[in-house]
């Protein structure tokens, strides 16, 4: 490689040579950004493990939730009775509503752990890749690329969903505790109720599609042999959850549920 073209004085030559030598020689090797630690929570794999486990807890809940929701197609008596059973779940060992509250607390812990690890990992990921390529290519699948925004959409949806059908705070029409059948019909009789719900359920499907498979990889269950089975299970779960949940507003809209 050539140095900068020589100038008339020796001094100029000297500085040119020095300048270009320091350009080429690496600055002192970049030190690690912090001291290594073997801690569980400080590790990216540890945080991912928390995310995987909390995600699977929520996923298990969603499977139970969709099964319960589909009872709406068997009429108000059965659906409302199911709602009542949720309150006496675990009786007589558990006191009235204790089973429900235990489930709620476990879910809240799962949502919290999932969100905190997602936030911390995302911040780290963005910091690790601050410069974008000038030539950008599309890359990974839609489900993979929308995990972060999908997660935020789902968090907002959960807030609305609880305020709508659990507390009744933002419920359209008169919210009646203990009469979930009527409440569901109220919500899905509004255009925005249907829109929010259906968009969120599509987001659930996408999130589960990449999330379930990813959780398997994070927990070390994935390998080349199980790849197909895991992908298939993830897709199946996503499809069943999305279709199952969306069936309810569609049922109300078409008058099957009334």
């Amino acid at each position: 490689m050539a140095l900068a073209p020589s100038k008339d004085t020796a001094a100029a030559k000297d500085t040119a040579a020095k300048g270009s030598a320091s350009d080429r020689e690496a600055a002192p090797a970049r030190p690690p950004s912090r001291t290594p630690t073997r801690g569980f929570w400080s590790s990216t794999i540890g945080k991912k493990t928390v995310m995987a486990v909390s995600g699977l807890v929520m996923l298990a809940y969603l499977v139970a939730h969709v099964a319960g929701n589909l009872k709406v197609f068997f009429g108000p008596e059965e659906f409302n009775a199911y709602g009542h059973w949720l309150r006496v779940m675990g009786a007589p060992v558990l006191h009235h509503q204790w089973g429900l509250w235990i489930a709620r607390i476990a879910l809240l812990a799962a949502v919290g752990a999932h969100a905190v690890s997602a936030y911390q990992l995302s911040r780290r990921d963005i910091k690790a890749r601050p410069t974008r390529y000038a030539h950008r290519r599309k890359g990974s699948s839609y489900a993979t690329r929308t995990m972060r925004w999908g997660g935020i959409i789902l968090a907002l949806f959960i807030v609305w969903h609880v305020l709508d059908l659990t507390t009744g705070t933002v419920h359209p029409g008169g919210f009646e505790e203990g009469r979930p059948y009527q409440n569901v019909i109220d919500t899905f009789s509004t255009w925005y109720g249907n829109t929010i719900y259906i968009v969120a359920m599509l987001a659930v499907g996408l999130h589960v599609r990449h999330g379930f498979w990813s959780a398997a990889q994070t927990l070390g269950v994935g390998n080349a042999r199980r790849e197909r089975a895991l992908r298939l299970t993830a897709n199946l779960l996503a499809l069943v959850l999305t279709a199952g949940f969306i069936a309810v507003p569609v049922g109300v809209m078409t008058g099957v549920v009334n």
Partner: peptide, 14 residues
């Protein structure tokens, strides 16, 4: 631990 200390990001399995 060293990988994390170097400031690499986490894996999102893309």
């Amino acid at each position: 631990a060293q990988m994390d200390a170097e400031g690499f990001g986490g894996c999102t399995l893309t």
